[in-house]
């Protein structure tokens, strides 16, 4: 073990991430900044650089908030630390959504709840549009990117192509293009 790194107990990793997972309302980036405040500044478990790297790798597969938890847990205590962090982080949301799902499926015939959910319905779609706009701003640069956006949109929206097929093809295209660029520069 490096001498500079503190040995943190699995219990402390679990409770810390449980606390983050229970209080980080707002999700996504809001919860990541809470994580940074707690793990980097308050507890000094890792440096800001390492934290940012964890966040970058966390973008690859799945939700980055969960992935960053796994990264920090692993950094502190290896695989068990990573699992302790992941379970601690997800547990509060899991219990909350189980409770909400139970209430929903038990009571969703109620007219009051129906009325409230009719109001949320268009806002959920607005949320998805905002996500697409935000990602476009930060990630879409140049003609190749715009074409990919347009083709995958049209494929799914108008031609009913399976989303999975689109993702796999786009992955192959992106990797191939990057490989070609590496070889021919």
């Amino acid at each position: 073990m490096d001498t500079g790194r503190k040995r943190v107990s699995l219990g402390e990793i679990f409770t810390t991430f449980f606390y983050i997972g229970a209080t980080g309302f707002g999700g996504g980036m809001a919860i990541v900044s809470l994580m940074e405040r707690v793990c980097v500044h308050r507890k000094r478990w890792l440096g800001l650089d390492e934290f940012m790297h964890g966040l970058a790798f966390g973008q690859i597969l799945g939700p980055f908030s969960l992935n960053t938890s796994v990264f920090i847990g692993y950094y502190l205590r290896g695989s068990l630390g990573g699992i302790a962090a992941a379970v601690g982080f997800i547990a509060p949301s899991f219990f909350l959504i189980s409770l909400l799902s139970w209430l929903y499926f038990k009571f969703h015939e109620l007219p009051q709840l129906q009325a409230a959910l009719k109001g949320t319905n268009p806002v959920v779609i607005a949320l998805i549009v905002v996500a697409a706009v935000g990602m476009t701003r930060s990630k879409v640069k140049g003609i190749n990117d715009w074409l990919m956006v347009a083709i995958s949109f049209a494929a799914v929206a108008f031609f009913n192509v399976n989303a999975l097929v689109v993702l796999v093809l786009a992955g192959i295209w992106a990797l191939g293009r990057e490989y070609y660029r590496k070889e021919h520069q």
Partner: peptide, 16 residues
């Protein structure tokens, strides 16, 4: 490569 693949994700989200 991962960055190159993201525009397709955006297209899918917009289609959703």
């Amino acid at each position: 490569a991962l960055d190159g693949f993201l525009p397709a994700v955006i297209g899918l989200v917009a289609a959703a």
